[in-house]
Every structure is written in C-alpha cells, then in structure tokens.
C-alpha cells in the first residue's frame, strides 16, 4: 500500500493572507519532502503573470513571486492541466485564470509520472471542476 499525504487548500485573496498560508503550508510540505504528498487547491495565484486574462492592468508580480517561491521551496511540482486552460472565470466573463491545480512532491510525481489533471466544463460555479486519475 502506498502511504501518502494530502493537503486541501483554499487560499485567501489578499496577499498578506496568502503569504502566511505559503509559510505554514511550506513548513508542512518540507517536513514531508521525501513522502508522497499532493497539495490540491484553489490557490488564488498563478505561476506566470501571463496566465491571467484580466480586464484591468493589475500588477500582481509580488504575489506570483511568493507563490513560485513557495512551490520551489516546498519541492513541489505543478503538472499540466488538460481540457481547458483556465479554471476560474469572473461573473462578467472578462477575467479568467488557471487558479486551481494539483501540486505533487517529487516522490509522488515520479510514481505517478503519467497522470494528468483534466478541467471540465464550468457549471454554475465560477470555478471549473477538475480531476486527476492517479495510477
């Protein structure tokens, strides 16, 4: 039987709240760096600023830097999303971002190297449901 850890995350929208979250989650992830760890969530952040489509010119560079540092320092890997590019849409349909994903520890990603995450069509929620088949 495979032992594993799972963290289900719902990140706040404000930069300060997210910073605290990345600190806490980073310590948790590092303490399990050699384990099979999956961090799944609505991170309310993106790895690349270009991944966002926004109606306004919003500078969120610091936010992106913190998120990337958290992923790198926690030795986690983001793997590609299939099905559609964005997982979140604003009510007016003008802004969209890939905010949801599964991050895997090195150990887990080498075990489940051929897994992919698939985002499904969005329904009533502003987020698309998504799933991943691990085998």
């Amino acid at each position: 039987m495979i032992c594993f850890f799972l963290a289900n995350v719902y990140a706040p929208c404000d930069v300060r709240g997210k910073r605290e979250l990345w600190n806490q989650l980073g310590s948790f992830s590092r303490s399990r760096a050699k384990s099979n760890l999956c961090v799944c969530g609505d991170f309310n952040s993106v790895c690349l600023e270009e991944e966002r489509r926004s109606r306004g010119m919003v500078v969120r560079g610091v936010d992106t830097d913190f998120f990337n540092s958290f992923i790198a320092d926690s030795h986690l890997m983001d793997f590609s999303l299939g099905g559609r590019h964005f997982t979140w849409f604003s009510g007016d349909g003008l802004s969209m971002s890939p905010l949801d994903s599964f991050l895997l520890s090195e150990e887990l990603s080498s075990r489940w190297y051929n897994c992919a995450q698939i985002a499904l069509q969005r329904g009533l929620s502003d987020h698309c449901p998504h799933y991943s088949q691990f085998r």
């Binding site: 039987m1 495979i2 032992c3 594993f4 850890f5 799972l6 289900n8 999956c38 799944c40 969530g41 949801d100 599964f102 449901p129 998504h130 799933y131 991943s132 088949q133 691990f134 085998r135």
Partner: peptide, 14 residues
C-alpha cells in the same frame, strides 16, 4: 490528512 492507498489507481476530484 495522511493515509494509505489500498488500490493501484484512484480518481481525485476538486
């Protein structure tokens, strides 16, 4: 949570 996977494959939805 921490646990053990009893099967070879698993569907994880979010």
């Amino acid at each position: 949570f921490g646990g053990r996977l009893k099967k070879d494959d698993m569907l994880f939805s979010g």
